[in-house]
Computed example of a mutant assay.
Amino acid sequence: MKNRRAQLIFYLCTIACMAAASGGYDSVLNNYLSHTFNISETTRGWLEFPRELPGLLVVLMTGLLCMLPVTKVGAVAAATFCCGLVGMAALGGSFPLMVCMMVLSSAGQHLMMPMADSLTVALSRPGKTGMLLGQVGAVSTAGSIAGAGLIWLLLDKANPQFRVVFLGAACLAAAGSALYFMMSMPHLHQRRQRMVLLPKFRLYYLLELLNGARKQIFLTFGPWVLIQVYGRPANTIAGLLVVASVLGLFFKPAVGWAIDRFGERAVMTVEGVAIAFVCLGYGYALRLCGGDTQAALPLAGACYVLDNLLFTMGTSRVVYMSRLADSPSEITSTLSMGVSVNHIASMTIPVMAGMIWAGLGYERLFLAAAGLGLIIAAVSRLLPGHHHWRPQV
């Protein structure tokens, strides 16, 4: 019990550091690309292909590192993210070199995804996985508040110092790597399977694919709408992320409680329907307000915040998958495969989405995202009900 509590404290500190680093980096990335290179929405869409490539390759990266304990893989991931951020600060003035460093930092971020979820499941008590996922999410949110909040308060609107942001985030990532390295969880040290693609996980993989498509539309073009359509600076986007993060301190534990209480099928269904309404509101806010950007901005900002909150509900997929798994090592390997499946859509959708924006307008793009939300809700109804599950591993 004492060892579990000690490891949980280490883990929560690590999560806070990595969330603060990602919060600062993610809140300025789109403004950095627009301010430094003045790229178009089509180029922005194409840029997601190399940026999301590490997500597709996560299953290969974790396979190559299968001899390492999960905590040490987390340390490698955080160190890789740190190196990419340092490279962005040092070489980010050159577009080709910037792309290389962005891919390196992305590799670290994506490698951390299955490791973090796997550790959370391993540290949870039976029947309380959703609750711990929510609590870890709240800690992550607090870290994001710190990272994005500092950007909102300190970044110069007229002459933003992106290099300072990247170096500050790199320091936090280095601290996260050190904390991961200090963790010790012997029951997770068994060798993992290199690749898990089993029929029992087919609905999990399908949901990951659909969520990867809808997620990438909003992650890539949500900020782009605020920048290009509403003319907002990095501080505005960082401020909205702070609002989403503050609300997330309460929303994420509530989602975890709802998963344990009502089951992941109910939570995923609500998530899909909510995605549809949020995407419609975001895409058509300007039309609803008669073309007045000042009147539409609060509605668009509210939808941006709500969509960031809805990402939290993806923890229901982790709980669903963990109920099907037969061992902790199978959870880690399946989560890695899930990240790769998710990024099949993440790599291809932004290119098509950029073309839709250029040809039909951003409204039609978010209309398509709303349709994906309804499909997610429909597929979620195929999952077993809450009372059909055996105890979790």
Rank of each mutant, 00 (worst) to 15 (best):
K2E: 12
R4M: 04
L8V: 07
I9H: 10
I9R: 14
L12C: 13
C13F: 13
T14Q: 15
T14N: 14
A16K: 00
M18S: 10
A19V: 06
A19P: 02
A19W: 02
G23Y: 09
D26S: 13
S27L: 03
L33V: 09
N38D: 12
N38C: 06
I39M: 00
I39G: 00
R44D: 08
G45A: 13
W46H: 06
R51K: 14
P54K: 03
P54M: 03
V58C: 07
M61T: 12
L64P: 03
L65G: 05
C66E: 13
A75D: 01
A79S: 09
C82I: 13
G84C: 03
L85H: 12
L91M: 15
L97H: 11
V99A: 10
M101K: 13
M101Y: 14
G108L: 05
L111I: 13
M115Y: 08
S118T: 15
A122C: 12
G127L: 00
T129L: 01
T129R: 02
G130L: 00
L132E: 07
Q135A: 12
V136S: 12
G137E: 02
A138G: 01
V139S: 06
A142E: 03
A142D: 05
I145N: 03
A146G: 10
G147Y: 02
A148M: 03
G149M: 02
W152D: 04
L153H: 14
L155I: 15
A158Q: 14
P160V: 09
R163T: 12
R163H: 09
V165R: 04
V165T: 14
V165Q: 06
F166S: 01
A169S: 11
A174K: 00
S184G: 08
M185K: 01
P186L: 08
H189Q: 08
R194M: 09
M195P: 09
P199E: 07
R202I: 11
L207I: 09
L209C: 06
L209N: 07
L210S: 00
R214V: 11
K215H: 14
I217L: 11
Y230I: 09
A234K: 04
N235F: 05
V242C: 06
V243I: 14
A244D: 00
S245C: 05
P253C: 02
P253R: 00
A254F: 09
R261G: 06
R261M: 06
F262E: 04
G263R: 03
R265L: 07
A266D: 03
V267L: 05
F277Q: 05
F277L: 12
C279I: 08
Y282S: 02
G283P: 01
Q294A: 14
L297P: 04
P298H: 04
L299N: 04
A302K: 01
L306W: 10
L310T: 11
G314F: 10
R317W: 11
M321T: 13
S322R: 04
L324I: 15
A325R: 02
D326Q: 15
S327H: 13
P328T: 15
S333H: 15
S333N: 14
M337H: 00
V339W: 06
V341Y: 00
H343V: 03
M347H: 06
I349F: 08
M355F: 10
I356D: 03
I356Y: 03
W357D: 06
A358D: 12
A358N: 12
L360Q: 05
G361H: 04
Y362M: 02
L365H: 15
F366P: 01
A368H: 11
G371F: 07
L372Y: 11
I375E: 01
S380Y: 10
G385A: 14
H386A: 13
H388C: 12
R390F: 11
